[in-house]
Design a protein around this nucleic acid. Structure first.
Lengths: 134, 134
DNA sequence: CGTTATGCTTACGTTCACGTCAAGCAATCT
DNA sequence: AGATTGCTTGACGTGAACGTAAGCATAACG
């Protein structure tokens, strides 16, 4: 059962990260596990944030960029300038991501072409070798 | 005029990188400028490779991953096992990139939703403030 | 009740991708 | 000739994102 609170080990197993990583993210204020005595217990909020963190990392964003993005996902924020800024940053990130997607599309096409050229080239080499062996 | 050979400074201006970066990439065997005495001169091949390097970096690939990919773009390679391996690696990268594109698409959607929620939320906060000021 | 596992803090180490001097050579301007 | 400019090779420094090891507390197991 997916309990509401998870230990650090459960988190590590669930998300395939190390304890060090989770403590590091807490130090950087990306997640906020509660304490039971000295131990950390991670909430569903932490899990949602961690999911977004790992996703962001795969797009090459820095932890600091991700942290700012996460603020946008905090629906308890009633500070107008802060929310305004979060939205602004969110728009920038969105632009980044759309640009990246477009570039990625181009790069995929290029790589596909290069691959089919490479396969053809390889076949040519193999044929040459076979002919030379007769 | 775009000469065939460019100095390090011309390269830096053209690609918005530092000399250190170009020397570093040469040391890592990502580019192979020729020498005029002691000075580096960059060919169109170096420029093509640099373009691919900078693109790869934007997708979060490491320089080592990029180096392997660049080998695939070397059409002078007549070594069958090497070409075979390059194609293999290229296929893996292609898969990575397609996965990343799909994930990116999802993330963009999520961020868009979060942004429109945020904008709505912000408007609510502003309205509340206006009402409280009466 | 001792051992094994899990967790904590503190702190130094590591990898990647460069940045930042220092010191020296070579061509060019004055 | 002397100074400036551009490029070179070391070599040490840096920030991000953790890894790793030491030393201690607590908790679960047999």
């Amino acid at each position: 059962m997916t309990q509401d609170l998870m230990t650090i080990r459960e988190m590590c197993d669930a998300f395939d990260v190390t304890p060090r990583t989770l403590r590091f993210y807490e130090a950087k204020e990306l997640i906020f596990p509660v304490r039971e005595g000295t131990r950390r217990l991670f909430t569903r909020t932490d899990r949602a944030r961690l999911k977004l963190i790992l996703r962001g990392k795969r797009f090459g964003f820095s932890l600091e960029q991700i942290r700012q993005l996460l603020d946008l996902y905090d629906r308890n924020n009633r500070n107008i300038p802060q929310v305004t800024k979060a939205i602004e940053l969110g728009r920038e990130r969105l632009d980044d991501m759309e640009r990246q997607r477009d570039e990625l599309e181009i790069a995929i096409k290029g790589l596909r072409e290069q691959l089919s050229w490479g396969e053809e080239h390889l076949q040519t080499l193999i044929n040459e070798t076979a002919k030379a062996a007769e």
